[in-house]
C-alpha cells in the first residue's frame, strides 16, 4: 500500500512539473492570474503573449525559436541558396515556383516558333 502511495505521489509530482508550464503557454492560462508566474518566461518584452508552436513550416521548432535567435538559413522555401556562402553554383535548384521548368519535363511554350511543337534537343561539348 505504501509503495502504491509513493508511486502515486511521484507520478503526480512529475505530471505537475511537466504539465503546468505547458498549460501556462496557452492563451487561456495567460489570462488567469494564478498561472502568470509560470507563464512569465513565455511572454515577450511588450507583455503580449508569445505564441509558441511546436513546429511550423518556416522555423525549426520552438526550442530553436526560444534559444537560437541567429537565423542564417535561407528561408524563402524554394530549396535554393540565395547567396554564394555555401559555394554551390550548380543548376540543381529545381521545382521552385520561381525557376523555369527544365527541358524535357514539359512541352515548349506555344509561342509560334516551334513549328511542330517538338521540344529542342541540346548537346554541350
Amino acid at each position: 500500500m505504501k509503495k502504491t502511495l509513493i508511486l502515486l505521489a511521484a507520478s503526480t509530482a512529475f505530471t505537475a512539473s511537466v504539465g503546468l508550464p505547458a498549460r501556462s503557454a496557452t492563451p487561456k492560462s495567460l489570462d488567469s492570474g494564478a498561472s502568470v508566474v509560470i507563464a512569465a518566461p513565455f511572454k515577450d518584452a511588450g507583455g503580449a503573449p508569445a505564441i509558441v508552436l511546436a513546429s511550423d513550416d518556416k522555423d525549426h521548432g520552438w526550442f530553436r525559436r526560444l534559444f537560437d535567435r541567429e537565423d542564417d538559413d535561407d528561408d524563402d522555401d524554394d530549396g535554393c541558396d540565395d547567396d554564394k556562402r555555401h559555394g554551390d553554383d550548380d543548376d540543381n535548384c529545381r521545382g521552385s515556383a520561381r525557376n523555369p521548368t527544365p527541358a524535357g519535363t514539359v512541352a515548349p511554350p506555344k509561342n509560334g516558333l516551334f513549328g511542330t511543337g517538338t521540344p529542342p534537343t541540346v548537346q554541350v561539348n
Binding site: P100, T101, A103, T105, V106, P108, P109, P119, P120, V122
Partner: peptide
C-alpha cells in the same frame, strides 16, 4: 519564366 518553361537547360 513561363516564356522558357520546357526550354531551359544548364
Amino acid at each position: 519564366t513561363a516564356q522558357i518553361n520546357g526550354i531551359t537547360g544548364a
